[in-house]
Design a protein around this nucleic acid. Sequence first.
DNA 1: ACCTGAACACCGTTCAAGT
DNA 2: ACCTGAACACCGTTCAAGT
Lengths: 240, 240
Amino acid sequence: MPFTGGGSGSGRSALDQRRIIDAAVRFIDEHGLRMLTMQRLGAYLGVEGMALYRHVPGREALLDGVVESVVDELFGDPDVHLEAHAGWVDYLQRLAHGLRRIALAHPEVFPLVATRPPAAPWVRPPLRSLRWIESMLEVMTDAGFSDENAAAVYRAFSSFLLGYLLLEVSGRGVETGPVEEPDVTPMEDLAGYPLLQRLEPHLSVDVAAQDFEEALEALLDRVALLLPRRRRPPRLTEGK
Amino acid sequence: MPFTGGGSGSGRSALDQRRIIDAAVRFIDEHGLRMLTMQRLGAYLGVEGMALYRHVPGREALLDGVVESVVDELFGDPDVHLEAHAGWVDYLQRLAHGLRRIALAHPEVFPLVATRPPAAPWVRPPLRSLRWIESMLEVMTDAGFSDENAAAVYRAFSSFLLGYLLLEVSGRGVETGPVEEPDVTPMEDLAGYPLLQRLEPHLSVDVAAQDFEEALEALLDRVALLLPRRRRPPRLTEGK
DNA sequence: ACCTGAACACCGTTCAAGT
DNA sequence: ACCTGAACACCGTTCAAGT
């Protein structure tokens, strides 16, 4: 029975929605999304699997809860602390770095964030916490961005984070387990791509952190141009 | 039996890998990824489902084939025609527009492109056709970019396309079918987000095409700065 | 050579029954 | 009130059997 052992120190006490979602996040972190099954998650919690349906509408809703929960970690991150920001540039930088930390902390969960169907059908759903979006729109409009530009910034910023972090996170977790992830048989042959071979060291090198800083700064510069008739805000000293 | 009727004019003749992958792409376009099942795909091809295993290693490998096939549509697109490009800027613009057309033509397939596990473990796998990556690296190095910068451009460009197109494509296909997509019960309430409500018209407005042009141009400007000691290439006239 | 029937181990989900 | 056993309809996959 390889999927037991839910909480480190937590009591073996009653199930509820919070505990189930938290367990699902830890389960995915440990075993990967493809291993998450209602019955296995039940076993992980010391319970029989169908018991979960008493607290959660079903598997799809559970996954939505997982995404929401992980994205909402932002609001508990002391290095983010969005309420006490020093201007919109600082706010967006904290947000970006906080979300990057989350993506790196939950690399198996993050692709789920990108691909779940939308919660509110009319809001393009990238980094899906409505709380997160609301907070960002508030800061941007308070900073003087028009409603239209605030929405445009939201789209640009979240598509940047989505693409960048998805790219960075994929290809991690190579050593997830002993023989798990059963090595899908590829249908194509990898030979015959000389430049891929020659540039291999540059493609696999891990310059992700620096790439991220540079791309983020370029985006913020671009956003600043939307602000009506003000000098570009002074460049901040490097965030942590 | 709602999942029959494979090819418009194609003969009902022998199965092979190509025909199966093409059918899978069309099936996903029509019914969505979540409906794709070996047995339903079999029925779609007028065959019994287990028959597919004679030509395809399994479901996972089939999905890899679907991704590869869709991304490789680029090489058949006459508006792309990457072999006859006029410099790297033109090449990247054609590539970007071609990939956007593909994403919009196969909105149900595109998220798969973003989330399949890597083919070659050392190449960060965004827009996964190795043929595509090889071609791009060749153009960039021929244009004078160092190996290191060519790899950096590949990462920046593909993460841009990944994030942007994933965002644009999600939230399409609302009317996929009559009562399909059984309206997952959300666990949270949508009320209490005043700015989301106020900016709703700006968030749902479809300015995607123009956004895309602007973000692409900004990225290309940024890439041009990597090219050693040359003036920025002249701005091209608006691509189609 | 290629497809099918039957079978296996496993899914998500429901619900009457236990405690 | 909360969990379990049994059941249902459906998965992916294998393989001996049909044609």
